[in-house]
Design a protein around this nucleic acid. Structure first.
Lengths: 241, 241
DNA sequence: AAGTGGTCTAGACCACAAT
DNA sequence: TTGTGGTCTAGACCACTTA
């Protein structure tokens, strides 16, 4: 009998998910073990197979089990292997810290120098540098290039005077996918001055390339924008596993 | 009609997902727009509502749409806001680079100093320091504490002489969840010596706290292990959006 | 009060892969 | 060949929210 509380629904896929999750985390079912099939579990929990299927799919998506036709479902050998990283707008990130947000454009101009190899050689680029502040202190330096042939209007003067490129792009650029690379690097002269730290101070760097939807509807079209974010010291990226 | 190719299934939730995804990425449906209800879309695609539901749920999980009862489904204001981060074992991470993996234990002993505030004051801790090599070059310094009262046997001598604590724990410790924090920091004396770099060199730091399942089956039990990973310069964390 | 998503069911057929 | 997961359906009821 699985029904316990007065308000307990007869068969809730979340309840099944919890129970299976428990059996795995307590090693009642150890890594590598083959667990019962959907039909069997459905009988055990007294519900339809589709309900068990949903619970198992959620476990699979979280990386707790590995499912294969005919082979069955097994507890993953390496259980915690995936985490979801939410990427908020910088303004939201700062406001979530309980700090006041401010923005200042440093420069916006047709690009002289472009980051090598990311855009087509003849792409009409705009270069934008801007600072984001938390409680009047520099929080992150944003250095960005935008391909105007993909995002018409991005070369309008003063466009980014009072709104960050990211927020404008979110509203005006088509998107499909992209890549993000995070690393640690010493502050260069520009970053040091903008953030008010010494040269070579360790900075958390996030670089992000966004791509337009490709012709066939896939998610690997031509680059729309490339941004390098250099965070002031102390910035931490938190994840829940 | 939606059926086009000879092999096209009548109604495939992935096809619906692709089509809706396309409408969003091309801004046919712009951020903030209310999109048609499940019933309407089911009629359009000629399938059951459950099939549309599955496609929309996938979009919601990816952060492309926001769904609320009675209010309907809207295109998210900030489209790309989530990324999946896969966290492989260090050995797998190094082997994925095409490099040879090697491991060397530096020290393993009852903990004298514990990271403050992470474990109970009287918890019987073991402290482990170890180096992971890629092609004979230091790749990451692992500094770890383990609560032996949660993981019996972790204080066995020479347990981590030839296998990393992480791999042993994966096989022997119950788990439930945890937190991970990433940042950039200057190398301290220990890290500098172990990794063969100068003091204050910028390092990518990942700190990970793992928790045991709590009594009620939740995912916020007592700490099992805390690990600090200090990566040699050049390490990059790549994400696909 | 009413509309929308959330979920369950019972049955069916299919796709893949191990035997 | 056959067992297992993958998916679809048609209908039903429920839960949450907005109006």
């Amino acid at each position: 009998m699985t029904v316990e509380g007065p308000k307990t629904p007869r068969a809730d896929w979340r309840a099944i998910h919890r129970e299976l999750s428990r059996r795995i985390s307590t090693r009642e079912w150890a890594p590598g073990d083959l667990i019962p099939g959907e039909e069997t579990l459905a009988a055990e929990f007294g519900c339809a197979r589709a309900t068990v299927n949903r619970a198992l799919n959620a476990l699979a998506e979280a990386g707790l089990v590995v499912r294969r036709r005919k082979a069955g479902t097994r507890v993953a050998e390496t259980p915690i292997r995936q985490a979801k990283l939410s990427i908020p707008l910088i303004r939201e990130e700062i406001e979530a810290l309980g700090a006041d947000y401010a923005y200042r454009l440093i420069s916006s101009s047709p690009a002289d120098m472009a980051p090598p190899g990311r855009f087509a050689p003849d792409a009409p680029l705009v270069h934008v540098a801007a600072l984001h502040f938390a409680d009047s202190r520099p929080y992150v330096l944003e250095t960005r290039w935008i391909d105007c042939s993909v995002v018409p209007g991005a070369d309008r003067p003063d466009l980014f005077a009072s709104q960050s490129a990211n927020e404008w792009l979110v509203r005006h650029a088509p998107y499909a996918g992209g890549e993000m690379v995070m690393s640690a690097a010493p502050a260069n002269a520009t970053e040091a001055e903008a953030l008010g730290v010494s040269i070579a101070t360790p900075l958390f760097i996030a670089e992000r390339l966004t791509r337009a939807p490709s012709a066939n509807g896939g998610n690997a079209g031509s680059p729309v924008t490339f941004a390098r974010l250099a965070y002031a010291p102390g910035r931490k990226l938190r994840l829940h596993l």
